[in-house]
Amino acid sequence: MANTIIINGDTRKFTIDPNVKRYALIDVGFKQTKRGNFVYDRPLYNDSPYNATCKLKITINEEMNHLTMVITDRSGLQKVNIFKNEQLSEMVKLLDYTLKDLEDHQIIKLA
Results as ranks from 00 to 15, higher is better:
Met69Ile: 08
Leu44Phe: 05
Met1Ala: 08
Arg42Val: 15
His105Tyr: 15
Phe38Gly: 06
Val80Ile: 14
Ser89Glu: 13
Glu86Val: 13
Glu62Tyr: 14
Cys54Pro: 00
Arg12Phe: 05
Arg22His: 07
Met1Ser: 15
Leu88Gly: 01
Thr59Asn: 12
Thr68Glu: 03
Ile5Ala: 00
Asp47Phe: 14
Leu99Pro: 01
Tyr97His: 10
Gly9Cys: 06
Thr98Asn: 06
Arg74Ser: 10
Asp104Ala: 13
Arg35Thr: 07
Asp101Cys: 11
Thr68Pro: 00
Thr11Ala: 06
Val80Trp: 04
Lys93Asn: 12
Gly9Lys: 07
Ala111Tyr: 07
Lys84Tyr: 09
Gly76Cys: 02
Asn8Lys: 13
Lys55Ser: 04
Val28Thr: 06
Lys79Ala: 11
Lys21Tyr: 03
Lys57Glu: 08
Gln78Glu: 12
Ile7Tyr: 01
Glu103Lys: 07
Gln32Pro: 06
His66Val: 14
Gln106Ile: 09
Ile60Gln: 03
Arg35Ser: 12
Ala2Asn: 09
Leu102Asp: 05
Val20Asp: 01
Leu67Val: 02
Asp73His: 00
Ile16Val: 08
Gln106Ala: 15
Met1Glu: 11
Gly36Phe: 05
Val92Phe: 07
Asn46Cys: 15
Leu88Tyr: 11
Gln78Ile: 09
Ala24Arg: 11
Ile71Val: 09
Gly36Cys: 04
Arg35Asn: 07
Asn61Ser: 04
Arg22Cys: 03
Glu90Ser: 14
Thr33Gly: 01
Ala111Met: 03
Val80Leu: 08
